[in-house]
Nucleic acid binder design. Structure first.
Lengths: 242, 242
DNA sequence: TTTTACCCTGTAATATTTTACAGCTATCTA
DNA sequence: TAGATAGCTGTAAAATATTACAGGGTAAAA
């Protein structure tokens, strides 16, 4: 069975439950006993949306949340906060600092003997991470992690892809038949580049009044309340592009 | 030699030249004769910044650029335009359509017999892809690609990480200096939602003056000339996600 | 021929943003 | 303790954007 066949089932999942069992199965085939996948989308920056697929022992997960370990977890800061692209293998050098070391030691009591964390960043600003752990405390288990680190990273990619389709696409912006005229797009594009109405007028060889007119029409079509809103929507919806 | 030792040299590169030779070496060890890595940052909508590390035959690269094949290349649209997270193996099913098939056939004349493309998306809105190709036209070469697809994906991650450090964090892009504070992001987000300074002030329970202050700081960090520009950049670069 | 879509322009009051000046507090780290 | 960073606030003039009124044209489709 090739690696691709291994991940294929993820692309066929339709529900969160399927996603969970399928991921658990694949992680198991790679030699991992536990997994946890989390994705964060900054829909609201004060309360970012988080989706978590938990394959960790419930007790440990509860403790993690209760003690707000996310704040001190170096794997979280590596993957999500700092948005690094490379994986991090759980190592004593990783868990530096008293709080992090304490957290790591506690996690071992719940069966997370060794493991690694993998980052995936989506093209729409979302940050995700997959942690895979083994309950075996042997050098053989550690060596296994290194030897299949590529497959593990790929699992993170496939899982993220599937999550995006099943979970994250719900709130996506609707690309309806919103059609902007040429002039509207031109004005929006220049406005998005920071040009003022007067400057756009000079560029397009029309009056400032007409620029206002086109931007107003574009805004109305998109339900925008002002120029900034119109620009934000146009970009988000992919209506203006080079 | 473990996989991690294989990629380690990438993290020690200091120049673009080192990056090139190191990547070529690793790709070679994986059995690939050619590679190309490209990253795109939407600092500006009209002129996105592109950095390319070319390990393809120069003649083919020149032809690709000349004929603007980027427009029809399904691997480009998969990785960059659609921002998928999973790799794509070059397959006749991938290169559908006359133009894409024609391009693919031409590429074979330049020694790109089989290969695959890997996407990496950074945490700052940049979209990157790595294509790896073999000049051997055998089923064995194709099987090799599948068997090392995990390592290849990992190479893409490490290469992107190194590029981010060496190229993207310098010059006018300043991705590292582009760290926005929580307040700056909050203000930008609400401004992008069409709120005025006064409205944002009410939402965040601060004065309108302070909202102006944060938006000004955010704009300066991103080199924006006004509020609209700041919003456009923040969205394009994935710094905020409305 | 009428309708429709797109494009263009004017005036003027009002609302909002930009800019330049200035100063405050709190926290963390070297 | 000093410095850096983040957050917060004030005033006031000047520049821009928004809004509501008004009007004009062309070209293609119904």
């Amino acid at each position: 069975m090739s690696d691709l066949d291994l991940f294929e089932p993820l692309l066929n999942c339709g529900t969160v439950e399927e996603l969970h069992t399928t991921t658990a199965s694949i992680a198991g085939q790679l030699g991992f006993d536990h997994f946890i996948y989390g994705v964060q989308v900054n829909t609201s920056l004060t309360r970012p949306y988080q989706f978590i697929l938990n394959g960790y022992p419930k007790e440990w997960r509860a403790r993690y949340v209760e003690h707000n370990y996310q704040e001190v977890d170096p794997t979280y800061s590596h993957c999500i906060t700092r948005r690094r692209a490379i994986p991090v293998i759980w190592d004593s050098r990783v868990f530096t600092g008293d709080k992090a070391a304490k957290m790591r030691n506690e996690s071992k009591e719940f069966g997370l003997q060794c493991g690694a964390s993998f980052a995936v960043h989506g093209g729409h600003g979302e940050a995700a991470m997959l942690s895979l752990a083994s309950s075996q405390d042997t050098s053989k288990a550690e060596q296994n992690i290194v030897s299949i680190i590529g497959k593990s990273q790929l699992l993170a990619c496939y899982l993220h892809e599937a999550t995006q389709r099943i979970v994250l696409s719900k709130g996506s912006l609707l690309l309806t038949k919103m059609e902007l005229t040429l002039r509207e797009k031109e004005c929006l594009l220049w406005a998005a580049e920071g040009k003022t109405g007067g400057e756009i007028a000079d560029i397009l060889k029309i009056t400032e009044r007409t620029v206002t007119f086109h931007l107003q029409n574009a805004g109305n079509k998109m339900g925008a309340s002002n120029r900034q809103h119109a620009i934000a929507r146009a970009i988000s919806m992919g209506l203006i592009a080079p």
